[in-house]
Amino acid sequence: MSGLTKDEIAALVARDIPPGSYVNLGIGLPTQVADHLVDGSGVVLHTENGMLVMGPRPAEGEHDPDLTNAGKQPVTELPGASYFDSAASFAMMRGGHLDVCVLGAFQVSATGDLANWHTGAADAIPAVGGAMDLAIGARSVFVMMTLFAKDGSPKLVPECTYPLTGVACVTRVYSDLAVFDLVGGEAIVRETFGTTYDDLERRLDVPLRDGTRAPDPPHPSKEIR
């Protein structure tokens, strides 16, 4: 049995973003979610370096050095775009004006604590960027990660051992093996991929609840704002 690929996780996240949402995609893996957003969904991408209605990567040879995303990769502007300074960009986050942000993680706790900026290793150079602002600011914080680290240890944990990015901020975890809603200290399993609820219960050390037989997961067409 095998779980989802990273690209399949990205597609799953894209599926669950309600039409018309204002969304910030973190650097790295979450950036791939943009490739799966459906035309006409009305989802608006925010980038922390000061832009709304960000478009995809430009065609070869049409890079504008003044137009990048948070990962400093070249992007484009779509009709309806706007630019603003960094203070305004982060006021949008902190002020609760973004509907969804998607972030990567080293660890997430069952109570929604997020650790994604620093391994705490002595020789590591820490870098936080906008992760702490996004974690506490966006109305829904989605995490994309593999459920287990390369050494086999779970990344959904009772309590984070890595330095925290934010406290009780993660609302949903998308992993290669399952999607979890974090509610009241419990991880509710919404969907599983190549595994079963019982298997997850054996391998994870967090309070789990079986939500796989709950009513349909939200689909964009059913969550019009």
Binding site: I125, G130, M132
Partner: peptide, 23 residues
């Protein structure tokens, strides 16, 4: 360049979340 200076202890770093830096 920064990574080398930091590892050699030749530069001090104050890390600030980006929104706090702007604000």
């Amino acid at each position: 360049v920064f990574d080398g200076l930091y590892r050699e202890g030749r530069i001090e770093l104050e890390l600030v979340p980006q929104g706090n830096l702007a604000e």
